[in-house]
Design a protein around this nucleic acid. Structure first.
Length: 559
RNA sequence: GCGCCUGUAGCUCAACGGAUAGAGUACUGGGCUUCGAACCCAGGGGUUGCAGGUUCGAGUCCUGCCAGGCGCACCA
């Protein structure tokens, strides 16, 4: 069940007024204008506003204020709307009716599990592919941002009526993996007293030695007694599985979970790699130069061509990425695909778009979100992160130090476009006073009231919501009503960073209400008010919980 | 050199081309004998990097500068 949006109702009223004005000859337009209805920044300007008269003033050569008056007079009456007011220089402001607002408390109460679900996606399939770290080491802080962003975006899209697949692309083929396997093998040999050196540019991180140690414990020196190539292959298989398992556990720890882990190697096993390449060749996008096979992405607007098969005959990473997107669009037929990449891959956007176009899919259905870099600091000192040298702070260390909820909130509240500095000392210090807890505290406080009411066996099901007339009560209801609109908006803009800011406002609205409106009163004269307010508290809890759920944060009953 | 992103309060960051640019944090002062003070109230704090332009209206769009980040491989 989806929550209807008041905003859409207002939009329709305006559209009706425009149509009526045209019929009456008060408005002559070549094209029907796109109507915008917004939430004004200031409460005094009403619940909704449209700037339509201002935007039509030029085309119609009419005074915007007079046009606003005219249009306002054609706006039909509606149950939800108390007042329509024209404001200079040409806004039309809408004020919601108190009785209608009160009634929304009942609406929320009746949809505890689905409030905030809207039908913007109409069941369209969308894949969100994110994190996709090479399984050559654990997930670190930089990847955590994309992980939190992707998981929240997926939640939002699901709430907005899309059929969402969360996918992790496991880069388990290619030369970096080979390098990793050899590194583990070298550590394995060393652990058994065999003099061995790490490959040049091998992985030197402590976790590689630990991995080798685990293999020694489970398998002893089995792999010393066989042909080296076979040993590396078998140790490689073990290491890869362990590493992917570790990545999965770490992500799960910060509540990032996937519907599917897609292996790059399967692209070669199923023949999809070959199909994708053949398809490009047939379309004339491939050419051979300098013993390598090139994708002529310049034909599609990229500023340079890219190698897909090296002169050694080995496919590049880009080649399997093409095959992977062939799988996403052509094989699995996702209507929309969202890739979340780090800023260091930003330069590859044009070629990926070009490749999708060359495969015969619409590149507009591929959205690549770029999450900017996270610079990690400890006080004034910058902590360099390098997987190769093994110096980095892992996701798990971070989440354990700062806390999962605070961590998610911290990453989530910032626009992906903005680089961030993550000061571990500051984060630890601030974690106790993190806004995340402000929101959770609102939920816990709320739960405290409901639990007390239940302990006292108060039955509030007959509460009369029309008693909720205090400005703090109405403000809380108004804030609650914004969640479904926000879900629709975020699904469209793909900007989930609005969610934490909204949740803060919702928590504030609740704390204000709590401060000013006693719910469970000892005074028998307040009996009816108590019942009405318990309904409000119940509905507020639903919206707080839904907001926290969407962000992947806990909604504690006590803390 | 070219491309993408960023520059807003002391700090960390919001703001779909709209109305007096907002939060958190820090600082100062105030508020618990009643549902949880991890809360609330009040206060100071800004030439939105700089300069032009577009328009009824620009932090937001365009142009040029300045500063920072990331790219520009037959690595991923």
């Amino acid at each position: 069940m989806e929550t209807p949006l008041v905003r859409d109702t207002i939009l329709q009223l305006v559209a009706q007024a425009v149509a009526q004005a045209q019929r009456e000859g008060d408005l002559q337009l070549q094209t029907t204008p796109e109507i915008e209805v917004d939430r004004p920044a200031k409460g005094q300007h009403g619940d909704f506003a449209t700037n339509l008269p201002l935007r039509l003033a030029r085309a119609t050569r009419l005074n915007p204020l007079k046009l606003a008056d005219k249009l306002a007079s054609y706006i039909p009456a509606h149950d939800a709307v108390a007042q329509v007011v024209v404001a200079p220089p040409g806004f039309i402001n809408f004020y919601l009716r108190e009785g209608w607002l009160q009634q929304q408390v009942e609406v929320v109460r009746q949809t505890p599990d689905s409030y905030g679900r809207v039908d913007a996606g109409h069941g369209r399939t969308v894949m969100v592919e994110f994190v996709s770290v090479n399984p050559t080491g654990p997930v670190h802080v930089g990847h955590t941002r994309g992980a939190v962003l992707g998981s929240t975006l997926a939640n939002v899209l699901e709430a907005a009526g899309y059929v969402v697949t969360r996918e992790y692309y496991v880069n388990d083929a290619g030369s970096q993996m080979e390098n990793f396997y050899r590194s583990v093998f070298a550590r394995y040999q060393q652990a058994l007293g065999v003099a061995a050196e790490l490959p040049a540019n091998g992985y030197v991180g402590q976790y590689v030695a630990e991995l080798a140690q685990e293999i020694v414990q489970a398998h002893g020196q089995t792999f010393l007694d066989m042909d080296e190539a076979a040993a590396i292959k078998q140790i490689g298989d073990l290491s890869r599985e362990k590493m992917v398992g570790l990545i999965r556990e770490d992500l799960s720890f910060i509540r990032v979970n996937f519907d599917n882990w897609f292996s790059e190697r399967t692209l070669f096993q199923t023949g999809e790699y070959q199909q994708a390449i053949d398809r490009l060749r047939q379309q004339g996008y491939l050419s051979e130069r300098e013993n390598a096979l090139w994708f002529n992405s310049t034909m599609l607007g990229d500023d340079k061509d890219n190698v897909v098969v090296r002169s050694t005959g080995e496919p590049t990473y880009f080649a399997s990425d093409i095959a992977y997107h062939y799988n996403k669009f052509i094989k699995r037929e996702f209507a929309q695909v969202i890739d979340i990449w780090g800023a260091d891959h930003q330069g590859h956007v044009p070629r990926m778009k070009a490749a999708v176009a060359a495969l015969g899919a619409n590149p507009e259905n591929l959205t690549i979100l770029i999450a900017q870099m996270v610079t990690l600091k400890r006080g004034a000192e910058v902590v360099r992160a390098s997987k190769r040298t093994g110096e980095f702070v892992t996701l798990r260390e971070l989440a354990q130090e700062v806390g999962v909820d605070a961590c998610r909130y911290f990453f989530l509240a910032r626009s992906p476009d903005a680089q961030m500095e993550f000061d571990l000392e500051l984060a630890k210090k601030e974690s106790s006073e993190n806004p995340a807890y402000y929101i959770q505290y609102a939920h816990a406080r709320n739960a405290g009231i409901l639990n007390l009411a239940r302990n006292r066996e108060i039955d509030w099901s007959r509460g009369d919501v029309s008693l909720l007339r205090d400005p703090n009560e109405l403000n809380l209801i108004r804030t609650m009503l914004r969640l479904p609109e926000l879900v629709a908006k975020m699904a469209q803009s793909l900007e989930p960073h609005h969610l934490p800011h909204y949740a803060m406002e919702l928590a504030t609205a609740f704390h204000w209400f709590y401060e000013n409106c006693r719910v469970i009163s000892a005074n028998p004269e307040d009996g009816q008010m108590t019942l009405a307010r318990l309904k409000l508290v119940e509905s507020a809890q639903i919206v707080l919980r839904r907001s926290l759920e969407l962000m992947g944060m806990g909604a504690p009953e006590r803390m």
